[in-house]
Design a protein around this nucleic acid. Structure first.
Lengths: 223, 223
DNA sequence: TGTTAGTAACTGACTGGTCAGTTATGAAGA
DNA sequence: TCTTCATAACTGACCAGTCAGTTACTAACA
């Protein structure tokens, strides 16, 4: 009996390929999805692996632990946007309020349309269990974001464009509605047949309020 | 050999006592602590039991599951305060802005001093995994809280005390800083040696801003 | 006023399932 | 051929939920 070839598909594609450079991003993208849907604790690495098209062991070739994978997700989702915001705020010389408007609308757009909106919720939820993650987020995201707004406010106050408000509370009051929108969209939206949160309308109302709060000449001729 | 009495302490107190009515509250209080420290998923019922001074089995005599215990915690922490707020808002006839001030300061005080401040964070974190809990919270807490503020705004607008603002976005803009404060205090406070969030200062700044936004006659004589 | 039988509160060891992380093995590519 | 990338079966810890047994209390009866 001649030796029968044991593999029936000589033209079958290989069961897997080596793709050392593409893997990390794909894994992070898959992890972003799963963490967003389930939260950190309830997310299963097996599911991350399946969505990334690899096996669970492969995750551990690129990330030493679930925690580190989580941090990588956060970094990947937040840092590019933050750098964009810093560039936007730094590169302007004229009046400050229009810059503030553009920043708010940009963040609102992110909140309303991208997966990055789930990041604050994830960090908030896990801050107690990952103090170093909370510290990282506080240092790399919150502090920098606050810094952008604070310097903008200070410039506006110095030039006389803005009333002399207290900077720190005002920064927090500017940010709060955006943060709340991000959290809302990823926690409560679409419950009980409620209409979804209208983020643009909320932001426009907020900008209108800020105009009355920050600027010296309030246009009182509104009907 | 005469029969030695096997129990050496005839006056020893019993190892446990039957306390059918006190148990549920004590268990809920212990669970509140553990959930607040660890989050729902990472909280261990064994630890809840130890802090409540009972065994794990006893928890299941009073609550059918971890989920139901969680809901009981939420109800116990939120509903009394909500009823107080509704009473406060309903029992007034004069101008609306002082009522709004009192409501905001009351909530700020809760946020700054009580364990109830951790509840929003817990609900936000677990909303994805417990849709019915999110729906319960939305229906019983958020909708009612929004209702209190919305009717107050409408009364103020109708009487001419307030400018004719859009009610729904404005309610959200009023609530956002308080929600953010609650989340902040239980997630980021005391990180990196930062000073803790000054909730009263934030609320006073917010009230000042709302005065400019809502009232018709803005006192422009501020230095 | 004991004594005792009955009951409901309570305990804690156990189970079954889940899942993060490990490793023996093999295929792909140089 | 040898190294690297990847797999998939495996392990061990952890924990919600269970249940057979124990104990505090009570009420009926002596």
């Amino acid at each position: 009996m001649p030796d029968r070839v044991p593999r029936p598909e000589p033209e079958a594609p290989p069961r897997w390929r080596r793709r050392k450079d593409a893997r990390p991003q794909e894994i992070v993208a898959a992890a972003m999805d799963v963490f967003a849907e389930r939260g950190f604790a309830a997310a299963k690495l097996e599911e991350v692996a399946v969505r990334a098209g690899v096996s669970k062991g492969t995750l551990y070739l690129y990330f030493p632990s679930k925690d580190e994978l989580f941090k990588a997700v956060i970094r990947a989702a937040i840092l590019p946007n933050l750098e964009q915001a810093e560039a936007l705020a730094a590169a302007v010389a004229g009046p400050c309020f229009p810059v503030l408007e553009r920043l708010l609308r940009m963040v609102a757009h992110l909140v309303a349309t991208t997966r990055a909106a789930t990041i604050p919720r994830l960090v908030i939820a896990e801050a107690g269990n990952f103090p170093d993650l909370a510290a990282f987020y506080h240092r790399e995201v919150i502090r920098r974001g606050f810094g952008v707004l604070a310097s903008l406010l200070q410039r506006g106050i110095a030039s006389g464009e803005f009333r002399p408000v207290e900077v720190d509370p005002t920064v927090r009051l500017i940010v709060a509605p955006l943060l709340m929108s991000a959290v809302w969209r990823t926690s409560f939206d679409g419950l009980d047949g409620e209409p979804p949160l209208d983020v643009p309308a909320l932001v426009e109302a907020h900008i209108g309020n800020l105009r009355r709060v920050l600027l010296r000449d309030v246009g009182e001729g509104v009907p």
